[in-house]
Design a protein around this nucleic acid. Structure first.
Lengths: 186, 186, 186, 186
DNA sequence: CCTTAAACGAGACGGTACGTCACGTCTTTCA
DNA sequence: TGAAAGACGTGACGTACCGTCTCGTTTAAGG
């Protein structure tokens, strides 16, 4: 049903959607409220997206919400630390935390975010290509697993266990992951 | 508001709650449906629990849903593999997947499950105490981090990226985690 | 679905219904407007009546809208003239005209009004019993037909042809009907 | 707004309008459905007719829906009986019943049908001219009243009271009307 | 055994949001 | 120029649950 183009005020709609999600959480996010804030009629939303999830997925995809740049620090460890820091912020900052918390159990949303995590992060992210160029990783290293470990541990720690992620925790985490993935190379 | 005792048919209520959660997901779980299935009046539920989340948390806590025993395999690697297998089942089986998917972003539920994960799994679980007794881990090893990595990676892999967890994945995962945590001991 | 009793503010609801019908006509009569004017929630209306027609029928039946007394004028002709006058007023006055105009093609409404016209008017109305007592009509006279002719002609003249009914027209009408029905007696 | 000519597919539009009216009744008759069935765009309809009623009135007028021929039976009574029979069919047959039931309370429609009833039927219909030629009626007889009585009684009997019109009823009706109107001549 | 208070069943109610339908207006694109 | 195409704001639809409330009725304990 999302036919590429979208209604005239797509941007306002996406913004309203993400803002309201941030403010009231997934359960408190209503189509009517989105419509009102975007100065668009409810029916217009239903004309383009058939469900709350579909709209939300489009909004997430259509915005740069999950995007993050990671500068080249010169070493894999430094880069991963930077990634871990960025990730912990993603999971902590209200706007993104609300989105990510809504993912589990909602296939349409999972599709949108997993496209980001598995695709963007694993294959396309320069961190791993740079590490291979530097000789810090072999080309066949388990980049997927690194992402699973890094992102997963953070997710679990922050969102499920209610923990916090200070510098020390991030360092421990990165070192542990790094040791693990390097050992497998041998 | 949950005054220890609870209404006369607590068990029927908890069962109905978890069953309906499994069947229709968190969003499709309604107080009225629970009341009807448990042959209890809606008012009775409101008398004892002030919200859907509170009731659900009580149901999770009051059942052995997240419990799992892990036999002594003789080695830390074997034990962790067993834990990973159990965890992947928890995250996969509909009844538990539905509960766990509902956790992020819902403090009341997070409280109930994190009690299990951080408490039960990290400190009380025999896997780690046995490993220390065997000399495979020092007493000050980072059991928390192990759980974060293991559970987190699985969670992330299964629920957020829509991946699957076969034996090979679990083995790679456990080895990676194990190497990491052992290296830190040195 | 109309279970005898009805909601707490039945009277307000009936009044609101008939008033709004009068003001905006059948097509402009909305459940939401009724609810608002009766200070009752929309859902309450749906709880008791399953459709606009059912509610309207109940309102018509529950009010004395179509009731009219006819004094004893001493002669059948006089009585019929009085009835015709009353009827022409019923068909003319906004409140009743709106109701009656909505009847054709709507079984639920037809039931409510035909109960009045055929039942009340034909059999129970003292005009005919008095006429028989006076000897102006035989007991087997065609009271039904008289009502059909009188009411029908008025209806047709006023509502379908957009005519008006002055004293002269009423007199002509009654005389014609009277002659007809008397002739059949012979 | 109806500028004489009309759009290119007037006939399809009129047919679709009357068919849909017959099928779903006035309340279920929608502009969009008419447009779709006539393979015409909604906008086109609005260009030519400003409302559902106006379109419907045009359709009724533009079709021979209410037309009916009455053969010369040789006597006024016979002719009136034939007219009554035809009328009872008009009021009974779905296609016409739906139209006529929609008339009361809708001026635009009333205009269209009353043109037929008062004009066509009363003044122009050969039944009355023939009766005058035969000497059965004086030229100043109350043809209008006859139509009111005949059509009105049938309408009332069939549509408002839910009665049926068999031969006996029609005969009684015609006789009664005839007696009435003849008596007035004297 | 009775009584008394807590718990419960029953159900009407005001309320929010749902997702759908048709309305009538508008602009843009074609023939 | 008239029609086709279709997006849009608008209002009402009828439904599902929500959470609250008022009533009686049960139930289980204690005097």
């Amino acid at each position: 049903m999302p036919t590429g183009a979208g209604p005239r005020r797509v941007q306002e709609i996406f913004t309203a959607t993400l803002d309201l999600l941030t403010e009231h959480g997934y359960d408190g996010l209503t189509i009517e409220a989105i419509a009102q804030r975007a100065s668009v009629h409810k029916t217009t939303l239903y004309r383009w997206w058939s469900s709350k999830d579909e709209l939300l997925a489009a909004a997430v995809t259509g915005s740069a919400l999950l995007e993050f740049p990671v500068a080249d620090t010169g070493s894999l460890r430094g880069d991963l630390l930077a990634v871990a820091t960025r990730l912990s912020r993603l999971l902590t900052r209200p706007a993104t935390a609300a989105v990510l918390a809504a993912v589990p159990g909602r296939p349409l949303l999972a599709e949108a975010t997993s496209a980001f995590f598995t695709g963007r992060l694993t294959r396309d992210h320069p961190v791993f290509t740079r590490a291979v160029e530097r000789g810090e990783l072999t080309a066949d290293s388990d980049a997927d697993l690194v992402v699973d470990l890094l992102a997963g541990a953070l997710w679990f720690h922050l969102l499920l266990c209610g923990g916090s992620a200070d510098r020390r925790y991030l360092a421990r985490l990165v070192d542990s992951v790094l040791t693990g993935v390097r050992a497998r190379r041998a």
